[in-house]
């Protein structure tokens, strides 16, 4: 599948920039979050209003007096995006606009933690919103503090590696399932390394009404501690090792959208990352065991 296969590349001469997220944003080199946003807007198109939570995605894109967003965009606070989006879409519909998509872009802190109440409310009301969580598994904007999206044992500045406690203790919230349990029409996970899968999910969400949620893994160069060139590679390895499953729950029915036949050893995913550097062989083996039990996919024979 090449350029014509819907990867979102532009066939253009010269240096014209016609993405709905302009260059000149100030994300760290190698940050995959702008890639996620760009493809979201690519699928949703110009008739889209972005509601952004306070996050890296906000500070890299909308530093006064400049903005990277070419669609209408609003940011107000950290915890309130699902309710802001509710207000936007309700007002649009009340004023006779029944076509514009309202999309939330928020990090895992806003989604799993501080904004979860507002999100739960919007889901319970089944507001006509698409919600994209770029999940970098910690509070990166404030300097890598743990969130309820941080995977167990990962080191963050507030789940440090101490003599008694070794990184994060609690498991990661199963957010896709939690959202689906609200009875919303669509809840899915995605990885940009599997771009056609991600875009198919976006297309599916776009065609539906009601609250639609997609959680996209978004490796963080400084937060996870790795070489910026491997952001996409890590997004891929997360799926290939079973750390990140690609699935969707449509009207309550779960379906794996991509399932590796055999899993790569999880060490391939963990070892390039500084946040897992402290792990002992026994801890890695424990993670591996957990993955095999959860996914029921056999480990690749080397």
């Amino acid at each position: 599948m090449g350029l014509k296969g819907g990867l979102g590349a532009r066939e253009l001469g010269g240096l014209e920039h016609n993405y709905l997220l302009a260059p000149g944003h100030t994300a760290c080199a190698g940050c995959p979050m702008p890639v996620i946003i760009r493809h979201v807007l690519d699928v949703l198109g110009k008739d889209t209003i972005v509601v952004n939570a306070t996050s890296c995605s906000e500070i890299i894109s909308s530093q006064y007096p400049r903005s990277a967003f070419k669609t209408p965009y609003i940011h107000s606070l950290f915890e309130n995006t699902p309710a802001v989006a509710t207000g936007v879409v309700r007002a649009l519909r009340a004023m006779g606009n029944d076509h514009t998509q309202v999309v939330i872009i928020a990090g895992d802190g806003a989604t799993y933690d501080i904004g979860f109440g507002a999100m739960s409310g919007a889901m319970e009301r089944n507001e006509d919103i698409i919600y994209i969580c770029y999940d970098n598994e910690a509070y990166m904007n404030t300097g890598v503090q743990r969130s309820s999206a941080t995977p167990p044992l990962a080191k963050t500045t507030t789940s440090p590696v101490g003599s008694k406690i070794h990184g994060k203790v609690m498991p990661k919230k199963p957010i896709v399932e939690i959202c689906a349990a609200h009875g919303i029409p669509y809840s899915a996970s995605a990885s940009i390394a599997y771009l056609p899968d991600f875009k198919a999910k976006l297309e599916k969400a776009k065609a539906m009404k009601g609250f639609r949620f997609i959680d996209v893994i978004s490796p963080c160069v400084p937060g996870w501690g790795y070489d910026p060139a491997i952001s996409i590679e890590l997004s891929r390895l997360a799926v290939e090792t079973g750390m990140w499953e690609l699935f969707e729950i449509e009207n309550g029915k779960r379906k794996d959208t991509f399932k590796p036949g055999q899993l790569k050893p999880v060490g391939l995913y963990l070892k390039p990352q500084k946040r897992f550097k402290h792990l002992s062989d026994a801890e890695i083996a424990g993670i591996q065991k957990g993955i095999l039990e959860r996914t029921k996919i056999p480990l690749l024979k080397s």
Binding site: I74, S76, R90, M95
Partner: peptide, 12 residues
Amino acid sequence: IAALIGASAAGG
């Protein structure tokens, strides 16, 4: 109030 922020920003 967040819904008011959104609704007002949308011109409502």
